[in-house]
Amino acid sequence: MSNKDTFREKVALAEMLKGGVIMDVTNVEQAKIAEESGAVSVMALERIPSDIRADGGVARMSNPQMIKEIQENVSIPVMAKCRIGHFAEAQVLEALEVDFIDESEVLTIADEEAHILKHPFKVPFVCGARNLGEALRRIDEGAAMIRTKGEAGSGNIVEAVRHMNMINKQIIELTDKNLDEKSSEFRVPVELVRYVFQNKKLPVPNFAAGGIATPADASLMMQLGAETVFVGSGIFKSSDPLERAKSIVHAVTHYKNSKEVLNASFHLKDAMKGILMSDLSENEKFSNRGD
């Protein structure tokens, strides 16, 4: 059965997560810290992106037992990641009743030709995008939330900024004259492109992810148009996770208020060290996975 009729409810959950911070956690203790700090949801995964990067090897869906323990110990929604194109991992996560599935480039790609067809699932999906075409292809497949890919595990905001700016720029460049052309360039139905042209935004919430490490990073992404931020390695790779988590939440709530972002930035210890993009080969960039 197609669940296109549940698309409204999938997007509605994404709507409820707006103005918040979604945090990567690897165990119950971290999940509780995230909840206490004001996180709106947690992403349960075995290794945070910076460790996946350091460890190498194949990165797969997390152990369901670990996800289940987190589900049992927090009241906020729990998300989990599956590999791009790995619909069987997604089916397992759906059976586990996670609240959102992230079909994520941070894990090793499973299908180099195609992403998961997400409409038949009852659980909503979030997918990463670097540009408008990629965002609309994912939405056409059934994604109920888009996030920038950024460069996960880098602690470097530059790629998230690039992706958010690119999507914004490509939205502005749509005109009533070029919709058919853009529809074939993006490989999506023209109705989808027309919606974006008419509403000047994506038909689903647009969040930021990949490289957010400080309260000011979070404020920057919100001011560029993100409606919520994901923070992965930035919190539990810092030397003061609870304080940093609280501060990033505060900076998102008050992202337009520089005094409050300042307040949030006081008393923090060291942020994660981070990686320069020039120190990563194209092969090492998660954001190049999937299109």
Partner: peptide, 14 residues
């Protein structure tokens, strides 16, 4: 409004 009650409660108490 709607949102996450745990989160909103938490932020109200800040």
């Amino acid at each position: 409004p709607g949102g996450e009650s745990t989160t909103i409660f938490n932020l109200l108490n800040r």
